[in-house]
Design a protein around this nucleic acid. Structure first.
Length: 205
DNA sequence: CGAGCGATCAGCT
DNA sequence: GCTGATCGCTCGT
């Protein structure tokens, strides 16, 4: 199976547009001879202007956030709660801050490998498929994505990139409030979370 | 230089 | 639904 990689222009748009268009696309992860593939079913947009939920609100530049000012298509990965990685994709042209957090995906290929990465064994208990990648931390664990990929160019990388997938119709894209950003005041109510209607791999309703 | 904390998960109630 | 785990990042001193 050949995967058709997304190119730079796709990622150079606004975070909200990129987030919606990422639904149905494939995350392809080549890890020492094994290919893992998962379909994006849920993501969130974060903006540099007027978005108190974003690490880079008010276009704040720090060691952690500097990559989001580069051109779209790079990986922004950070450690959260001291334990889990979150995988984001930088959006916009060079100099514009923006990113999309990948919150959940549906396992497509390399499922045994994902299971081993999550639970330490190849044994796939029946009914456990949903629990492999239905959250940002779980997704990174399953696909072995961590801060080594900070700044990785998904347009060039062979280890990690985004590929064409399934076209999701507009009426099947649900818009919702983002998760666990209660501190963000008015931005907590922005409908910047997007997920595929009725998809069981979405992290929460 | 150190206190405070978080874009989560698992396990328990 | 609630809480502990766990540590790098941020910012104030």
């Amino acid at each position: 199976m050949a995967y058709r990689r997304l190119e730079r222009a796709f990622f150079e748009a606004e975070p909200v547009q990129v987030a919606k268009e990422l639904l149905g696309k494939l995350i392809v992860r080549n890890d020492s001879g094994t290919t893992m593939v998962a379909k994006i079913v849920e993501c969130e947009a974060y903006l540099g202007d007027g978005d108190k939920a974003a690490h880079f609100n008010d276009n704040k530049v720090t060691q952690r956030t500097k990559v989001v000012y580069d051109h779209g298509g790079l990986a922004y990965i950070y450690l959260i709660y001291g334990m889990y990685n979150c995988f984001n994709i930088v959006t916009g042209k060079s100099g514009e801050a923006g990113a999309v957090l990948i919150r959940a995906a549906e396992p497509i290929d390399g499922i045994q490998c994902m299971h081993r990465n999550r639970f330490g064994s190849y044994e796939l208990a029946s009914g456990n498929l949903r629990n492999l990648t239905n959250g940002p931390g779980k997704l990174c664990m399953a696909m072995n994505i961590d801060r080594r990929f900070y700044g990785e160019d998904l347009v060039e990388s062979n280890e990690l990139f985004i590929a064409q997938g399934e076209k999701i119709e507009k009426e099947n894209i649900i818009e919702a409030k983002r998760v666990n950003i209660d501190y963000a005041q008015e931005a907590a109510d922005f409908l910047y979370r997007f997920y595929i209607r009725d998809n069981k791999f979405v992290s929460k309703k």
